[in-house]
Design a binder for these strands. Structure first.
Lengths: 152, 152
DNA sequence: AGCTATTTTGCATAAATATGAAAGACTGGA
DNA sequence: TCCAGTCTTTCATATTTATGCAAAATAGCT
């Protein structure tokens, strides 16, 4: 399946927040050997219900649909609350310990949130490692986890 | 203040989900004696960080920013959980009883969520009346309230 | 009020996005 | 295999959105 694969790529590209127009997708996909035109991207965006968000800094960037984000955050929160054991940070890393079996699920949820500041995520059975893009980002992520754990 | 007032109108227009393009805003605002061009709307949308969402039914419509929606839903949930007494529905109405003093706050939160299906909201000291656009909508709203009350 | 700085708007148009229609790919038969 | 139906893509272009710039409005002074 060609289309689905491309759309997976598109999702992955989302977290790198420099995507300001559809042509950016075209360019980035071409770099990955996937040759498409803007027209197709436009249709993909419609399919996937992505939105072009005016960012606080003056530009625009594409992002996950509202509903999905809300749903995912909800699951994320629940998983965190259910399985959370401890966390630690060092440098640009955040390491979350969870109850055995919950690592991959949590990592995948964090992935699909497409946080702008997250470079990558890795989960084994009971540990999730999140690699941030900057030290500031690490702090922010930490606060977000705090928030998810504490609020209801 | 001209701009702010217009932006308030724009927010109010959001809940009527037939707004598919910026020109629709122009048209609807003109109907309310507010004379603007599409250029201004484009800037307002950027200011307010509204997004154009591809809807499930094939079209597009403008909507509140993700973050604000999430924040508001959070407050709404908290308020509901804190102040909820009972609710009842009849026809296209949902009537929520809350602890004294919480009616207006709750009504206003529901307003700012801009639910597509809500025609209007009215809150006195301890009661909130929500008027839906259809019977189906009433059911949906009811379920949403259930969800907010039960989940965490 | 009169003047200056700042903000907001419209106009014109550039830039970006969406889409009809034709062509190409893919699917599951017969 | 060949075909009909379905799905997907591109091309060309219509439609929609964003923006530079000049004019107008607004706000803050004195």
């Amino acid at each position: 399946m060609k289309k689905q694969e491309r759309q997976r790529y598109i999702k992955r590209l989302l977290s790198s927040n420099e995507i300001e127009r559809q042509e950016d997708f075209v360019r980035l996909l071409r770099a990955e050997e996937i040759d498409v035109t803007q027209a197709t991207i436009s249709r993909d965006i419609k399919d996937m219900q992505l939105v072009k968000v005016p960012s606080a800094t003056g530009g625009y960037h594409y992002s996950m649909p509202v509903q999905k984000q809300m749903d995912t955050e909800k699951k994320l929160k629940r998983t965190l609350k259910d399985a959370y054991v401890s966390y630690a940070t060092q440098d640009k890393f955040v390491l979350i310990k969870v109850l055995p079996g919950n690592g991959p699920a949590l990592a995948s949820l964090i992935e699909t949130m497409h946080y702008d500041n997250v470079f990558g995520t890795l989960g084994d059975d009971s540990t999730v490692l999140i690699i941030c893009k900057s030290l500031d980002a690490t702090l922010e992520l930490q606060q977000m986890i705090q928030r998810l754990l504490s609020d209801n």
